[in-house]
C-alpha cells in the first residue's frame, strides 16, 4: 500500500496496479483451475452420491439400531384367523421377520420396522397389523434382547395384481439429541437395507 501511495503520478500508479493485479489474478485463476482439475480427477465434479442402500438376502440378519431384522418370507393369504379385512375379498400380504430390539428399552414402534415398495393397491403404508407369530396376538411392545418372529401384515386391494416379488425396506432409527426437547430420542427413521423377496401365494381356493 505504501508503495502504491508513494508513486509519483496516476499513470505509474495504474501501471503498478496492473503489474500487481495481473500476476495475482493469474495466480488465483490458475490455482482455482488446478483445484478443479485435481478434485475433478478424484470425482469432485460428479453429482453427490446417494448412499447406496445395501440389499440383504432373505434369511440374513440386518444388524442395526434400534433393532436387528431378519426378513424370512413373504406370503399372500386370504385368511388370518381373527383379523378382518376392511374390504371383503381383499388379500393379506404378510412379511414374516425376526426382530430383536437392540435398544435398552422396550419398543412400541414396531410398525416402523418395515415398509414395502413397488406393491400396488396396499391399503396403508404402514402394516395394518403387527402380529406375534408365537401366539398370534397383536404385538404392541417388544422387549430388548428378546428376538421374536413377527408377521407384518398389509391389506392389498383385490383389484391390484398380486405381486410376484416385493422389495421389503428395513428401517432404522438414530439415537441422538433432540435439539428441540434437549433430550436423547430415537429419531430420523431411514431405510437401512432392502430385501427383495419372492412372494409365496398361499391363498386357499
Amino acid at each position: 500500500m505504501s508503495r502504491v501511495s508513494a508513486g509519483s503520478g496516476a499513470g505509474s500508479r495504474r501501471l503498478a496496479a496492473r503489474l500487481f493485479g495481473i500476476p495475482l489474478r493469474w495466480l488465483g485463476l490458475s490455482a482455482g483451475a488446478a483445484t478443479l482439475a485435481v478434485s475433478g480427477f478424484f470425482g469432485g465434479l460428479e453429482g453427490p452420491d446417494e448412499p447406496a442402500i445395501p440389499v440383504v438376502q432373505p434369511g440374513t440378519v440386518d444388524r442395526g439400531s434400534p433393532w436387528n431384522v431378519t426378513v424370512s418370507r413373504v406370503r399372500l393369504v386370504n385368511d388370518l384367523g381373527t383379523l378382518r379385512l376392511t374390504v371383503p375379498g381383499d388379500r393379506w400380504l404378510a412379511v414374516v421377520a425376526t426382530v430383536e430390539v437392540t435398544a435398552d428399552e422396550s419398543r412400541n414402534d414396531l410398525d416402523d420396522v418395515l415398509r414395502l415398495t413397488g406393491v400396488l393397491g396396499l391399503m396403508s403404508q404402514e402394516p395394518a397389523h403387527v402380529m406375534l407369530m408365537r401366539d398370534a396376538t397383536e404385538l404392541g411392545r417388544l422387549n430388548p434382547g428378546m428376538p421374536e418372529e413377527i408377521a407384518f401384515v398389509w391389506e392389498q386391494s383385490a383389484g391390484a395384481a398380486p405381486p410376484g416379488t416385493v422389495t421389503v425396506q428395513i428401517y432404522g432409527k438414530t439415537y441422538r439429541m433432540d435439539n428441540l426437547a434437549n433430550r436423547m430420542e430415537w429419531l430420523d427413521p431411514a431405510v437401512r437395507a432392502e430385501v427383495v423377496a419372492p412372494v409365496q401365494d398361499r391363498r386357499a381356493g
Partner: peptide
C-alpha cells in the same frame, strides 16, 4: 397359522423395475 410353514425360499430375483427409493440423506 399359514405363515408358520418354513418353506425354503427361492433364489433372490433381480431388482424390480421400479427400483429402490433413494434413502433420505
Amino acid at each position: 397359522d399359514p405363515l408358520s410353514d418354513t418353506a425354503v425360499l427361492g433364489p433372490l430375483r433381480g431388482m424390480p423395475a421400479a427400483g429402490p427409493q433413494p434413502a433420505p440423506a
